[in-house]
């Protein structure tokens, strides 16, 4: 599936694209993700490191449609990640066992394909344990 709306900044490196309410709005300065797509929000690239604010495990296949994940469903972890001083964003949690997930754990932005067998997959925001990504890059 092609990407319908921009979740990530257009250029490398990987950053989430959010909106910051402009001065003319009553909530001026408030950051929202994803960017609402209207001109009363400035574009802001969010920080890539945060801590886990809360989470759950999606244990059953969501109703399809709208769900467009692989037909063979495997449970996945969904979190809210606190990007300090910016906003708390909803994202997949990857690179960790379900029973190792802890609120407050440091996380690093990455991305995950909704269906990695697709030719042009929908890429979703995801976070992995900070140390896991460091190790991956070193390898």
């Amino acid at each position: 599936m092609a990407q319908a709306a921009a979740l990530f900044m257009p250029d490398a490196p990987l950053r989430l694209m959010a909106g910051r309410a402009r001065a003319e709005r009553p909530d001026a300065g408030r950051i929202v993700f994803p960017h609402p797509g209207t001109s009363d929000f400035d574009t802001v690239a969010l920080g890539t490191q945060g801590t886990l604010w809360s989470y759950t495990i999606q244990r059953f296949p969501p109703k399809a449609p709208p769900y467009a994940g692989p037909a063979a469903f495997k449970p996945w972890a969904l979190g809210y990640v606190d990007l300090p001083g910016e906003v708390i964003v909803q994202a997949r949690l990857v690179g960790m066992a379900f029973d190792a997930i802890r609120i407050g754990m440091p996380l690093q932005l990455t991305r995950v394909a909704l269906d990695d067998s697709a030719d042009d997959p929908l890429w979703l925001p995801a976070f992995a344990p900070a140390e896991a990504l460091v190790a991956e890059r070193a390898a």
């Binding site: 599936m1 990407q3 319908a4 709306a5 979740l7 604010w53 809360s54 989470y55 759950t56 999606q58 296949p61 969501p62 109703k63 449609p65 709208p66 769900y67 467009a68 994940g69 996945w76 969904l78 979190g79 809210y80 909803q90 609120i103 909704l114 929908l122 979703l124």
Partner: peptide, 21 residues
């Protein structure tokens, strides 16, 4: 639309994340 495709239009996720916190 991507929000639904991702499997996030599921109310139980919200209730679970809220009480987990």
């Amino acid at each position: 639309e991507w929000y639904g495709a991702a499997g996030y239009m599921v109310t139980t996720q919200f209730f679970a994340a809220k009480i987990m916190r």
